[in-house]
Simulated scan of single mutants.
Amino acid sequence: MSANRAIVLIAGLFLFPLGAMANDCHITVESDDQMNFDSEEIVIDQSCEEIELTLKHVGDLGVDTMGHNIVFTRAEDLESLAQDAMQASEDDYVPAGDDRVVAATNLIGGGETTTLTLDPSLFDGDERYAFFCSFPGHWGAMQGEVRLVN
């Protein structure tokens, strides 16, 4: 490599840091048989055209006994939506047509994975958002904050 090419390459690394060249538009969250998410925060990068959110259930128990999903809602609606979701068993515990639901993954059991494509424009920067598992009894332990970044 010539000296001039090396200088251009080094200068390019300082002018365009690797982190600035790609957005974090792919998110993976794991859940388990002990009613845990591996993250208490999901970061939504609003500069992404879309975000691919993958939920992995790393446990062994089936969807009927230890099902998990991720439901996004405004923080102020979390408790009331979680209470109402327990009655929505025919809809995988996500009340159909409920405007408090911003987005939701499918309900999965141990060893399963589901992916949701999110439109970041669903999240208003002036609101606070939360996520939770709507399977009955899980939301108290399985919830977290959504942080919006540009």
Rank of each mutant, 00 (worst) to 15 (best):
G12C: 12
G12F: 06
E41A: 06
K56M: 14
R74D: 06
W139H: 13
S39W: 07
L13S: 13
G67L: 12
A103K: 04
G62L: 07
E90P: 05
P95V: 03
Y93L: 04
D98E: 12
A103I: 08
R100I: 03
N23E: 15
Q143V: 08
V58K: 03
I10R: 01
I44H: 01
V101I: 13
L61R: 15
L15Q: 11
S80V: 05
C133F: 01
D124C: 10
M35A: 09
R128T: 14
T73Y: 07
N23V: 00
R128H: 10
I70K: 01
P120M: 07
I108V: 11
D119S: 13
A96F: 07
E41V: 05
L81M: 09
G59N: 03
E50D: 05
D32M: 09
P120K: 07
H26P: 00
E90I: 14
K56T: 14
L53E: 01
E41D: 12
K56I: 15
W139V: 01
P136Q: 09
D92A: 13
V29A: 05
D24C: 09
E90K: 15
A96Y: 09
L15D: 03
G62F: 02
I7N: 03
R5E: 05
C25R: 02
A11F: 14
L15W: 10
G111N: 11
P136Y: 05
Q87N: 14
T105A: 09
C48E: 02
T115I: 04
A104F: 05
I51M: 09
F16M: 11
L78C: 08
V29T: 15
F132K: 02
D77H: 10
T114E: 13
E49D: 14
A22G: 04
E30G: 06
L61M: 12
V29E: 04
G137D: 07
R147H: 06
V94K: 08
G59T: 03
A11Q: 11
C133V: 06
I108W: 03
Q143K: 15
A11W: 10
L116R: 12
P120G: 09
S89N: 11
D24Y: 08
D92R: 05
G111R: 08
V102I: 15
N36T: 07
L53V: 03
N4W: 00
A103V: 12
A141M: 12
V94W: 05
L116N: 02
F16N: 14
G125P: 05
G12A: 12
V101G: 11
D92G: 04
A104Y: 05
L13H: 12
I27N: 01
L13W: 13
L53I: 03
D24Q: 14
L53K: 00
S89T: 07
N23A: 12
A130F: 00
A11C: 14
I51L: 09
F132P: 00
D60W: 14
M35Y: 03
D92Q: 10
P17K: 04
L61W: 06
L148D: 09
S31T: 15
L148W: 09
M142C: 06
L53A: 03
P120S: 08
G125H: 07
D32R: 06
E40A: 04
M35C: 05
V71L: 09
A82T: 01
F132Y: 14
D119P: 04
S134C: 06
F132W: 06
T114C: 10
N106T: 11
I51G: 01
T117F: 03
P136M: 12
L13N: 14
N106H: 12
G62H: 04
D126N: 14
L61P: 00
